[in-house]
Design a protein around this nucleic acid. Structure first.
Lengths: 352, 352
DNA sequence: CTGTTAGCGCATTCAC
DNA sequence: GTGAATGCGCTAACAG
């Protein structure tokens, strides 16, 4: 048995030869090229050859020719944050339903990496990209505003004219604080985030609005700024509750900082909700497994994902469409951390 | 200003023309091709042209020619599990340090998706792939044992001759149970996983070994099987603790089920560790933020990632090397869930 | 040292 | 209907 060709995987040419037709014809039937009628007999022979040879089209070659692919790129800022992985699931599902694959890249909140990955996506000629940016300004147009469609999720790209999907942050924060107020709290503390990021700024605004609407003053002594990470939630909360007149309730603007806040409170020997009530922003699959189960502003993470993905698909189909901006609604999930209440201990929005 | 070429990005040919050399020469200097000496003057002219034109090599074309890329593919089974995202970070870091990018795909424990993504990786001609498989047997060789190198992480691929990196599961489980035993517990419950997955099987074995070593009998009434997900941890634990003679301690073999177990215990009105001690397997960045802070067998997740990545790089460099199998050591992290002890409330192995 | 040439695998225009 | 010919952008013999 002379095995001349060591391994080379079959090409269209091989299929053509075996089916006794030209390569062109193979291309036509495989791609179901419109406006080309190939007789049933020929098609059959070709598909047979394809099967026999176990032929699979070379996507690289196709891409070189076509200038685009069926893959979409996703750039997220923190793969370890459950919020982003949940969003990813949503994107993933609509992508694969539409025949796209997903390339996921993690910037770790580093804009240099964001640039690098954006370059790679260009080089890979992805059909479009979804990005949760690290900085809301200063994106180089050749990377984020060129031929390839870009849509923003969770974070604004203020300097760009792109489709964007985010949550109504101000409203969510408003709801959170309102809930606390309705429970009789008057000294509501805030662990907020960075103002340069929309979610940070808007949630802070929601807090102030809710207070104002209730005729309450904003007390700077009750506000601390964190950096969205767990450790800062712990630190800032420690400061807040060790004051002479600590807040009776606390609103923390994101999930990781909320975890830190809870630890700080426990460590200080205070009980939740008896000594201090707490409401977070963004749910976790195991918010209910904390003690006590956490009351929080749940974001429609999965829908966030499906929505951006659909937006991107639309834009790929019609690059000229005017950019739209969509706000999804968060909702208050009441569990135990703001006061007694019977609630299922395991509540997972996107259950397994 | 005649703008004939609407948008087309510059090619090597353009650079060559501008620098007054041939396209080949451009290729040589850009790729720093060995055994080719180009005078400094020429190089300079070329790099100038590159800069002026803002030229960036087309990776698709290069790949078509070269048959391989600087990207490695990662297939994981659950992107929402913090364990995998932590491993991913490790992989990411060594990949990027070596000039590789990472394509991340999520199978959601669905073998069909695993196949699909493996196909895509072939089509994309990745340099290699790392996979945390969903089934330990039955991988089609043309997908997982062809030209492109494969390494396994966290899960075995028994039917394949591949490099693999996992944790010493039996030993970790042994440590966990031993710890419980040393604290005086004699009725140690087990929430274990699926035996078809190595980690599930091995951790179960570790549990039994530890018991046997202490001269204790295995009591089937104290053992329940879950499916590695949170909900089953909750359910199985509920069963266990509502028995006439509940265990005084519990070992849960993975992170998500541990979360469920804690919820079940709280809901049942029992206190940890006073009424029941609990030790988990695999740490979470916020294990310490739970109440009480969780004692657990921490896995070196990040190192798991760096190790596989390095193994893959080695294999890419030397495809003939005999497959190796590496076991990393887990370690017991004692916090509060097995008994009083002062420990920092926030302990994050890979801190921010 | 540098340029000429020949594909990589595929899609597609234009003849037949 | 089908095939020959062309080129996407790049690398690598092979000449010169």
């Amino acid at each position: 048995m002379a095995d001349k060709s060591p391994k080379r995987s079959p090409t269209m040419k091989d299929v053509a030869k075996r089916a006794g037709v030209s390569q062109t014809t193979v291309s036509f039937v495989i791609n179901e090229t419109p406006n080309v009628r190939i007789p049933e007999k020929t098609r059959q022979r070709i598909w047979e050859a394809v099967g026999a040879l176990n032929y699979r089209p070379n996507r690289v070659a196709r891409r070189l020719r076509l200038k685009h692919t069926q893959v979409i790129g996703l750039i997220i800022s923190d793969i370890r944050n459950p919020f982003f992985t949940a969003v990813t699931r949503g994107i993933e599902d609509v992508a694969s339903q539409n025949g796209y694959s997903l390339i996921l890249c993690n910037t770790d909140e580093d804009y240099e990496k964001e640039r690098l990955y954006a370059e790679i996506m260009h080089d890979e000629a992805v059909a479009g990209m979804i990005v949760a940016t690290t900085t809301e300004n200063g994106h180089e147009p050749e990377l984020f505003a060129s031929e390839i469609p870009v849509v923003a999720v969770d974070r604004l790209m203020r300097d760009l004219q792109v489709d964007t999907v985010l949550v109504d942050n101000a409203k969510g924060a408003h709801q959170a604080v309102e809930h606390l107020l309705s429970l009789g709290h008057r000294r509501v503390g805030l662990i907020c985030g960075q103002h340069k990021i929309a979610s940070g700024y808007e949630r802070h605004m929601g807090y102030e609005q809710a207070l104002s609407a209730a005729g309450l003053d904003i007390d700077p002594a009750l506000i601390r700024h964190g950096d969205h990470k767990q450790a800062s939630g712990y630190l800032r909360t420690s400061e807040l509750i060790s004051q002479p007149e600590p807040p009776t309730a606390l609103f923390v603007i994101n999930n990781m900082m909320t975890l830190g806040a809870i630890a700080a409170i426990h460590e200080n020997g205070m009980r939740i909700p008896d000594d201090i009530a707490i409401v977070g922003f963004d749910d976790l699959p195991w918010s209910a497994a904390l003690n006590p189960p956490l009351t929080t502003i749940a974001q429609p993470t999965y829908e966030l994902g499906t929505t951006v993905a659909e937006l991107l698909l639309q834009r790929i189909a019609d690059p000229e469409r005017a950019p739209v901006s969509i706000r999804l609604q968060p909702r208050l999930v009441i569990r135990v951390s703001c006061g007694a209440r019977t609630a299922p201990l395991i509540v997972s929005p996107e259950a397994d």
